[in-house]
């Protein structure tokens, strides 16, 4: 399992300010913390970065790789910024990843870059229109992205299919469909296609205390169906791995000693599987 550390995102105030000031300190500190928690790659989300995106991505990639011996996941819609990042990326630490292409023609140029620089690329299974309704729609879009990748000369082993995790608080029924999509994606090729998720979106909009719980157990449910990679909080994922054995037991209907933990796990499984209706206080019922 590849954990792609999500914490260097322009959405976070501290990161945004450090990016603006080109202050390496916070960026490198956050990169190191994620590396120490087990991240195998660091996501650098600079947003749309319409002005000065190239220089910013260059700076991010070199700043991160000065601090940790990891590849970087280049996260922006700005094509030129991605290319600038790829040019300075130190591939001795592993291949960089482009985040992302999709079935939207505007995103096809990202495949060109993936071919030209021989790097990894995320294929988000959405088209130009609305969100995919279910796992079948996601798989159909995935197949189109795969065909497009081959057309552009991107080897399929470099493509990571992303089913697009949605918020459980507003679209609960999608949680299980995404798990099924991860299963289906793997069957689209031999050897199986690689998969990735933007994990934390599952708990977006949920209360603070509930978020890590949903993130961890949703991750473990995706992991057991063969997920290859997750953009996530590596500290949370480390905890998830520590709880994995217990979680498997609860998932199989076995008893575990810690009854409170068992209750929390069971309730979360029921919410993810759509067996009970989500509410912010679902753990308190």
């Amino acid at each position: 399992m590849l954990i792609i550390g999500e914490k260097l995102s322009i959405i976070a105030k501290r990161v945004r300010e450090a990016m603006a000031k080109r202050d390496k300190g916070p960026i490198q500190e956050i990169a190191k913390r994620q590396y120490e928690a087990g991240a195998g790659m660091i996501d650098a989300n600079i947003g749309p970065a319409e002005d000065g995106g190239e220089e910013l991505m260059e700076w991010m990639v070199t700043t991160i790789q000065e601090a940790v011996p990891l590849p970087v996941c280049l996260d922006t819609t700005n094509y030129a910024a991605i290319e600038a990042g790829l040019k300075v990326h130190n591939n001795d630490y592993g291949l960089p990843m482009i985040n992302s292409t999709s079935n939207d023609p505007e995103r096809f140029p990202m495949l060109e870059l993936a071919a030209k620089y021989n790097c990894l690329i995320i294929g988000l299974t959405v088209g130009k229109g609305g969100l995919p309704a279910d796992e079948e729609e996601r798989a159909a879009i995935a197949a189109e992205i795969m065909a497009r990748a081959m057309e552009y000369g991107v080897p399929l082993e470099n493509l990571y299919l992303d089913p697009l995790v949605l918020q459980i608080a507003t679209t609960q029924e999608q949680a299980i469909k995404v798990i099924r999509a991860v299963e289906m994606f793997q069957q689209l090729n031999e050897p199986p296609m690689k998969t990735v998720v933007g994990l934390s979106n599952i708990s977006n909009g949920c209360p603070k205390n509930v978020r890590p719980i949903l993130n961890k157990y949703y991750f473990l449910m995706l992991e057991r169906v063969g997920l290859t990679a997750a953009i996530a909080d590596p500290v949370e994922m480390k905890e998830a791995f520590e709880e994995k054995e217990l979680f498997e037991k609860v998932l199989n209907g076995e008893e575990i000693e810690d009854k409170e933990l068992m209750r929390v796990m069971k309730k979360t499984i029921d919410v993810i599987e759509g067996k009970t209706l989500y509410a912010h206080s679902y753990l308190e019922m």
Binding site: A169, T170, Q172, L277, Y278, A279, H280, S281, E284, M285
Partner: peptide, 15 residues
């Protein structure tokens, strides 16, 4: 018009 918030309100009331 939000089923999850409807459930949440009922939980808060029972709490």
């Amino acid at each position: 018009l939000d089923i999850n918030l409807s459930k949440q309100l009922n939980i808060l009331l029972t709490q």
